[in-house]
Nucleic acid binder design. Sequence first.
RNA 1: GGACCUAUAGUUUAAUGGAUAGAAUAUUCGGCUUCGGACCGAAUGAUCUAGGUUCGAAUCCUAGUAGGCCCA
Length: 556
Amino acid sequence: MKQIIVDLLAKATKLKKEEIEKIIEIPPNSEMGDYAFPCYILSKELRKNPAEIAMELAREINKNKKSLKEISRVECKGPYLNFFIDKKMLAKQILAKATVSEFGSAKEKQKILVEHTSVNPNASPHVGRTRNSIIGDSIVRILKFRGNNIETHYYVNDVSKQIAMLALVFKPKDTFNSMLNNYISISKKLEKNPSLEKQIFQLLERFENKDKKTVDLFRKIVGICVQGQKQLFEELGIKFDKFDYESEYVGSFSKELLKKFEKTGKLFEDKEGRLVLNQSNTPVARKMKAPYFVLARSNGTGLYGLRDIAYTLDKMKKGKNIIVLGEDQKLYFEQIKEALKLLNSPYPEVVHYSFVLLQTDSGARKMSTRRGELVLLEEFLKESVKKAQEEIKKRKTKGDAKKIAIAAIKYAMLRNDNDKNIIFSWENSLNFEGDSGPYLQYSYARASSIIRKAEKSKLKSKSKSYDIPELTSQEINLIKKISEFPQTVEKAEKQLNPSIIANYSFQLSQSFNEFYHSCKVLGEDCEEFRIKLVNAFRTTIKNSLYLLGIEVMEEM
RNA sequence: GGACCUAUAGUUUAAUGGAUAGAAUAUUCGGCUUCGGACCGAAUGAUCUAGGUUCGAAUCCUAGUAGGCCCA
């Protein structure tokens, strides 16, 4: 539809199609038209009042469009040229497209590696950390839906002080659940008795030197933690294709990499004998006090930065890379990017997200373990399930409390722009009315209920053909919203931003509920048409929610 | 001290430089003899401050203020 208008304007104005496409907008009010072309740009060139230009263009276009059924009329209002599309034509098109399950998908066929979620394998994640996984998973879903071949990776930081600490107190019967307590107790011991630090670093050194006993112990602990986290994420419907271990990048591998850096002439030894990359001629220089990237200790063993570079180099061999990181990693990742550029390697595209803050009486603040001001994912999930169960009980309906709870959590994490902090409050998070995950699921369940009843009664009479009736404004709004789905997915993909889908899903559901309220489906003359429209809504919202990782239910 | 991100109704937020700043929540009213009231309708209420660019700024630029985050 939009393309038709672009073509018309291109003929009438001499502007390039791409230019016109950018300028065309949707009027604030549908009574003003379906698409609008503001004529300000032309006024400079033609040295005329934009309103006059609009009038001339309207005359010109009205001459040309006679053969087009899709455009019902063109008007000018002040400097705007407003296009009215034929709603019945649009309805016909959309009902044909949006009732097939692939609606909105594409066939891009690019091979992309996505890395997200790298929780320290030592503790239960809080909701802030979970934002990484939920955004990452949604991006994976969007890219797959667009037809790409995605491999999802999880980078396990198994070479860390935290694991060494756990190793110090590990007992054979320990489980994932006891790890957190172990970690807390050893942290406390360490605070009281700093001499333990030495033992911890010795253990880490033995691990890096591949002492078999130590390696086995680390492997065991990390195995338990990774398994536990994997289960937790699977509960949320988030899966990974591959777990990559930092420890695989220890040793001879790093020596070769250091040699490559040496050849660039940017590697030098600092006063303490460490191997340092000089980044003073790169963009990171002005962002740091000292633009140096420490890659190895004085004894020549690599540091985590070197391993990150090695790992990223490895991943880049597989094709395009996308990585989801917290805003705290911004500068660090730029350093890695500059290091990769130095070796003439391509680098990943990064999605950064801001943290979750906690709403307190004195305003929003960052979460703090010390003050006890934090929300664990498990706690959030538990409370949400409880709330969902209460709602189900109240309504005496069937429903999966867990699916509803997960929808609430995921939607809360995705509805904001990536680089905006999320302000978490229990009151808002446990409100399932309005702009919330359950509202979206509810709209689907309502639509499904109509379809169920329709199918039951249809056993008697089977009239499949239908005409498109005169449309109500609610029907038009719903049809228009549905028609926006493919371009919305495309935009979200381009910007790697799931919040675009989240916002769209809410608007779509709102349009449906307004339609539902004002247009009865069953038993009306236009029953067949409306059933088809309800079905178009169902596939669209289902696809849209799928991209957010939210499951729909026939009843709730 | 330096770098980056953010600032919109009481609260949480939307708005490719364009028409009357759109929602949700909270508050107050109204709507089931009707396909599901986790719904729908109405009212109230907002662009951090000061300059600048532009025919036109919530949006771009500069400075300040507040919060997030990183570097030393």
